[in-house]
């Protein structure tokens, strides 16, 4: 089977499972969160796996999407679905503002992106902006609350995200991004406009997080700034991606499924034990299995797409 088709098959299977499983096991919130992390992990994957930039502050786009969506509903009176798109646009705008961060090299970028997300959080949550963002008092979207619709839209966003990663794995642009990740200077001398390609990947991953944040806001409908700018959202998305293996389609899917499952077994009641486990996993992976769990499959000749 050509790899494009096996990739498409994976996409269809994942989406079908997301639609069917809630009918069999009636916990829609669990599956919604699973999809949120599947999409966010792929968003991290697009940036880190294909350009080498690790966005510790990725949650900044998620929170911006949530607030963009909410303000579009509350201030512009948009219906929820266009409002979700507005959330995505808000995240892309933030991405454009922060694009100069891409001038920084690896570690500086990672930390600067974390600082940026915290800065956005403290602005949004600031009491003196209560008139605009409702400051620390949070948002209520009770008027448009519709969990089954928002669930379907989330399936759509996840589908879009997986398709984007599949495209990068199969296309010329994906090969070019990998070249940039391997060596930006060589890539430039090969004629690649390194800055433009990086910015595009950055904006694509911002768009994904913004859309996911928008649907998330719609789904939970009542939230505080700290809910949608929670650093542990970035951290979990990054850990899931690294655990599964970056630069592939299946790596992050695998990482989210295993670790999000583990999170729901022990992480909800005893988060510190979950944190200890994934902290240790990261340390061990970095030292002994830098390619993530997917590289174990690859070694056995299994295609991780």
């Amino acid at each position: 089977m050509p790899r494009v088709w096996s990739g498409a098959a994976v996409l269809v299977v994942v989406l079908a499972l997301c639609l069917v499983l809630p009918q069999l096991y009636a916990n829609q919130f669990l599956f919604f969160d699973l999809m949120v992390y599947l999409a966010l992990a792929q968003g991290v994957n697009i940036l880190y796996g294909f350009t080498g930039y690790l966005p510790f502050g990725y949650v900044g786009f998620f929170g911006t999407g949530a607030y963009g969506m909410s303000l579009a509903v509350l201030k512009l009176h948009l219906p929820p679905v266009p409002a979700v798109l507005a959330g995505g646009v808000a995240a892309v705008v933030l991405g454009l503002v922060l694009a100069p961060l891409l001038r920084l090299s690896g570690a500086y970028f990672a930390i600067a992106s974390l600082a940026a997300s915290q800065a956005v959080y403290y602005v949004v949550a600031n009491p003196s902006l209560t008139g605009v963002t409702r400051g620390p008092y949070g948002i209520s979207l009770a008027r448009v609350y519709h969990p089954s619709q928002s669930y379907l839209v989330m399936v759509g966003v996840l589908g879009l995200t997986l398709a984007a990663v599949l495209y990068l794995r199969r296309s010329r642009r994906g090969m070019v991004l990998q070249a940039i990740r391997d060596d930006p200077q060589s890539a430039a001398m090969a004629g690649v406009n390194v800055v433009r390609e990086r910015v595009l990947a950055w904006l694509a991953s911002a768009l994904i997080a913004g859309l996911v944040g928008g649907v998330f806001a719609w789904q939970i409908s009542v939230f505080y700034p700290a809910t949608v700018f929670d650093l542990s959202t970035s951290i979990m998305a990054i850990v899931f991606t690294l655990f599964g293996g970056t630069g592939t389609l299946l790596g992050p899917v695998l990482g989210v499924t295993v670790l999000f499952g583990l999170y729901n077994v022990i992480g909800v009641s005893e988060p510190q034990y979950f944190q200890l486990i994934y902290g240790a996993l990261i340390v061990l992976l970095v030292l002994f299995l830098p390619g993530g769990a997917a590289s174990l499959l690859k070694r056995r000749g299994i295609d991780v797409l």
């Binding site: 690790l54 570690a107 510190q272 034990y273 944190q275 200890l276 902290g279 340390v283 970095v286 830098p290």
Partner: peptide, 26 residues
Amino acid sequence: ASTDPEMISLVFFFGVAEMIQALAVI
């Protein structure tokens, strides 16, 4: 000795940070 010491060490210490914080809570 890894391919990208700057990033790899950042991720390593990130894991260490998470472990220390978890152990402190425990």
